[in-house]
């Protein structure tokens, strides 16, 4: 029961974030704009740039899917680390 809630909560936050998260620039981006170094940014190409899913135009669904993909990637990363560690410590 408790484990289920623990797993569900990040998902709920992602849904909440997709609905209500501010699209305004963060503190460092604001400083970059105000102090004139925003143009120095070198955007690196990523699969889900700006927390959006490619090919999906609806911003809510796009952010939601990107968020859930992020959670999944992190979970798999730790799962693989555990597997690799147990393999090498045998």
């Amino acid at each position: 029961m408790n484990k289920k809630i623990i797993f569900i909560l990040p998902g709920l936050i992602i849904i909440f974030a997709s609905f209500f998260a501010s699209k305004q620039p963060d503190v460092l981006e604001t400083l970059a704009i105000n102090y004139g170094f925003a143009d120095k940014t070198k955007e690196n190409l990523s699969l889900f740039s700006g927390y959006s899913f490619p090919f999906i135009k609806n911003s809510f669904i796009s952010t939601l899917l990107a968020g859930f993909t992020g959670l999944l990637i992190i979970y798999i990363l730790f799962k693989l680390t555990k597997k690799a560690t147990s393999y090498f410590t045998k």
């Binding site: 909560l9 990040p10 936050i13 998260a21």
Partner: peptide, 12 residues
């Protein structure tokens, strides 16, 4: 880690 990722996504 998933909790932190989720919270860092939420811009207030």
């Amino acid at each position: 880690a998933t909790w932190i990722f989720a919270f860092q996504m939420f811009n207030v």
